Amino acid sequence: MPSSQASPPSKYEHLIARAKEVKPATTIVVHPCDETSLRGAIEAAEIGIIEPILVGPTKKITEVASAFNLQIAKYPIVDAPHGEAAAAKAVELIHESKGEVLMKGSLHTDELMREVTSSKTGLRTARRISHVFIMDVPTYAETLVITDAAINISPDLDVKRDIVQNAIDLWLQIGRGTPRVAILSAVETVTSKIPSTIEAAALCKMADRGQITGGILDGPLAFDNAIDPEAARIKGITSEVAGRAQILVVPDLEAGNMLAKNLIFLAKADAAGLVLGARAPVILTSRADSVRARMASCAVAVLCAHARRTTTALPGT
Rank of each mutant, 00 (worst) to 15 (best):
I227Q: 08
I47M: 15
A267Y: 11
I174S: 06
A25F: 07
A150D: 05
I234C: 04
K23F: 02
Q246P: 01
I151G: 04
D208W: 02
G210K: 05
I77L: 06
N152V: 07
A85W: 05
A296G: 01
R39P: 02
A271G: 14
R18L: 02
E188T: 09
D110W: 00
H82P: 08
I216Q: 09
M206A: 12
K23P: 01
Q246Y: 00
P179S: 10
T178D: 02
I129A: 12
E254H: 12
A269L: 07
T310Y: 10
N69W: 01
A255Y: 08
F265P: 00
A299W: 05
T310G: 09
T191L: 03
P24D: 05
L203H: 14
A45M: 08
I247N: 04
A182E: 09
L54N: 08
D218C: 03
A85V: 06
E240W: 02
I212F: 10
H131M: 14
I168K: 01
T109W: 06
T27E: 07
D156N: 15
R294N: 04
V275N: 11
Q173D: 15
L314A: 02
I264A: 07
G277A: 09
A90N: 05
G256E: 04
I16W: 01
I129G: 09
L203A: 11
S10A: 02
H131W: 05
E51N: 15
D208M: 03
P8E: 10
V302Q: 09
E188S: 14
L253G: 09
D228W: 04
A80N: 07
P195D: 10
L266R: 12
A45I: 08
P52V: 12
M206S: 01
H131T: 03
L263F: 12
H31Q: 13
H131V: 01
I163T: 09
S37H: 14
S185P: 11
Q211E: 15
A141N: 03
A19M: 01
T311Q: 15
G316I: 03
S290T: 15
I283D: 10
A231P: 03
I198C: 07
M258E: 02
K60Y: 05
G40W: 06
R287A: 11
K98Q: 13
R233F: 00
I227K: 04
R209M: 01
A67H: 10
T312G: 02
